[in-house]
């Protein structure tokens, strides 16, 4: 399989990169790990005249905590996320998700920025990041803006990113004690699998250790974009945690799902699975929030 012809640019820093994108116009594409883009190029799904490589942009690296927030540079690889010590506690679900993306070879190249900017409905990292209330940092020729991840996706393959913008990274408010989350993915194989459905759940318990202070449930592959389930959050927040509540919240999440039929599975099955996975994810999130190890998967 051959790649089409293109020019390759390796700008030195972020302003240069944004400038280059502005200059080259819509015919140019950013490339990070290339695990998504190069496949699309080989299949002729897109034919950009130029690729702008991010490998020199130091601004896009790093995994730093500061002022209650965690910054994750857009070039951070899935392998790095999966193994990162910074992603313990309430952030564990992000590492869990990253560890289930593709294969070891793919994880070594795939970046968080690429995973978000491709905006695949079934992508691995959006659900945990949505659950963690992540915000995307977008840099453009005019400077940087911050967008809530929940407002970032516009449709399959579509985001609010402008043609001359580059995602610098994401920031996540660090969950405190009593926070816990889980990520679950359903596919055919146990590796190298695009999700049929994936679900992330996050719970923040109040100091009483029983009342749910904050909750988010995010769903993948059941709508044109990864989504948060407002109904699930509503069902959970302010309630006392427990199996019955989680079952009800999972029902609510299933109602927020808008799956379609395709050759991988029917809409009805997907909706059903949202219910099953959401309940299990909430149970695991709760176990974690209470300081227990998640059991079932």
């Amino acid at each position: 399989m051959l790649l089409p012809k293109f020019d390759y640019h390796q700008p030195r820093d972020l302003p240069a990169a944004c400038g280059l994108l502005a200059e080259l116009g819509p015919e140019a594409r950013v490339i990070a790990g290339g695990t998504d883009l190069l496949v699309n190029l080989k299949h002729g799904r897109i034919r950009p005249k130029a690729l702008v490589g991010l490998e020199r942009l130091e601004e896009l690296t790093g995994l730093d905590s500061g002022r209650g927030r965690l910054f994750i540079g857009a070039r951070t690889s899935a392998a790095h996320l999966a193994a990162s010590r910074s992603l313990g506690g309430g952030l564990r679900l992000l590492a869990q998700a990253a560890g289930q993306l593709g294969s070891p070879q793919v994880r070594n190249r795939a970046t968080i920025g690429g995973n978000l900017c491709t905006a695949r409905p079934a992508a691995e990292l959006p659900p945990p990041l949505l659950c963690l209330d992540a915000r995307a940092l977008l840099a453009g020729p005019q400077g940087q803006r911050e967008v809530a991840l929940s407002a970032f996706f516009k449709g399959p393959g579509l985001t609010v990113l402008g043609p001359d913008e580059i995602m610098r990274g994401v920031v996540i408010p660090r969950p405190g004690l009593g926070g816990g989350g889980a990520y679950l993915k359903l596919g055919l194989r146990r590796a190298m699998e695009i999700s049929l459905v994936n679900v992330a759940a996050f719970l923040q318990l109040a100091p009483d250790g029983r009342t749910i202070a904050q909750a988010r449930v995010a769903l993948g592959a059941v709508a044109p974009t990864p989504i948060l389930s407002p109904r699930a959050a509503q069902a959970l927040i302010g309630q006392r945690a427990g199996d019955k509540l989680f079952a009800a919240a999972a029902e609510a999440a299933a109602r927020d799902a808008r799956p379609i039929d395709d050759h991988r599975g029917s809409a009805a099955y997907r909706r059903d699975m949202v219910r099953v996975l959401a309940r299990r994810a909430l149970e695991q999130a709760w176990d974690q929030a209470r300081g227990r190890r998640g059991g079932k998967s």
């Binding site: 055919l188 194989r189 146990r190 590796a191 190298m192 699998e193 695009i194």
Partner: peptide, 11 residues
């Protein structure tokens, strides 16, 4: 081989 699934070593 991504969408036609043969067993991986995990399966």
């Amino acid at each position: 081989l991504g969408e036609y699934h043969i067993p991986t070593i995990m399966d």
